[in-house]
């Protein structure tokens, strides 16, 4: 469970990134955060594992305050939160397996990992994670030999290897084509359902949000302007979140059609 209590993020130049956010995200939810770029989606997501610090308020992960945690305690909380990035963030010249294994470093002391050897259980966990995203056969390929969609699945496997309770995905499909977008979103949904991992995803495609989410949170200028189940997220609501009617390029279906024409 993740709780936001009066969370405010103000940048050094005075801009408000997040304005008094109060949210509770329950276990096993599949939450999609939508909003215009610059609305604070990424800031909100990255404040959960404290890749970004907040200015005031508090964020609790499973009852523990990540805002107040430091050092070892902070790393211990982060270990339980897997993260998936828009640009995959893999070490490109390392093998797929090595990349997935890096998800395990939080479980070992700094000294014992310095030699780069992981115990057999870790290898099993990593291979199992690769199995879940159907690319186990690529385990010994170099990451940069894989397609974009495959690389994103490796990064999902890396997050899974952490045995997380929460997965954060920051625009996970923004660099992918429509077809692989669906595969990656299907993977995230399956993992959410099978392993009951709370999943929070930033998306800018409205139709994708409706299709996969159990709950949609709309952000506008750092404030929560919508929070509810998919059934309530009508076109009118989205227009409200965006402050204008929905554009074509905010629909994956439209993008796919365009891609189809080009191809």
């Amino acid at each position: 469970m993740i709780e936001f209590k009066n969370v405010v993020k103000q940048y050094p130049n005075g801009t408000i990134g997040l304005n008094n956010i109060n949210l509770t995200i329950g276990e096993g939810e599949f939450v999609v955060i939508v909003g215009l770029s610059g609305a604070g989606k990424s800031t909100l997501l990255r404040s959960i594992n404290r890749l970004h610090d907040i200015s005031s308020g508090e964020i609790l992960v499973d009852g523990k305050s990540i805002t107040r945690a430091g050092g070892k305690q902070l790393r211990r909380i982060r270990r339980d939160i897997g993260m998936i990035f828009q640009s995959f963030n893999l070490v490109k010249r390392a093998t797929v397996l090595r990349n997935v294994l890096t998800g395990r470093v939080g479980y070992h002391s700094t000294f014992s990992t310095m030699f780069g050897y992981f115990p057999k259980e870790d290898h099993d966990i990593a291979l199992d994670a690769l199995n879940r995203v159907n690319i186990r056969e690529k385990a010994y390929s170099r990451a940069d030999q894989l397609s974009g969609g495959q690389q994103q699945r490796v990064s999902i496997a890396r997050a899974l290897a952490q045995k997380p309770k929460v997965i954060l995905a920051d625009e996970p499909v923004a660099s992918l084509d429509p077809l692989t977008t669906r595969q990656v979103m299907d993977d995230l949904q399956r993992i959410n359902r099978e392993l009951k991992i709370t999943t929070i995803v930033n998306l800018h495609f409205i139709d994708l949000a409706r299709e996969y989410a159990t709950r949609i949170i709309g952000l506008r200028a750092g404030e929560v302007v919508f929070d509810g189940p998919v059934s309530e997220a009508t076109d009118a609501k989205f227009a409200e979140i965006y402050g204008r009617p929905i554009h074509e390029d905010e629909l994956l279906a439209a993008e796919a059609a365009k891609g189809g024409v080009l191809a």
Binding site: R75, M83, N89, T110
Partner: peptide, 20 residues
Amino acid sequence: GPREALISSGASKLQVLRFA
């Protein structure tokens, strides 16, 4: 990117240097 990924998985500074 990999540095960010390692930090978010709970790695220490040396581990980030070593693996990212």
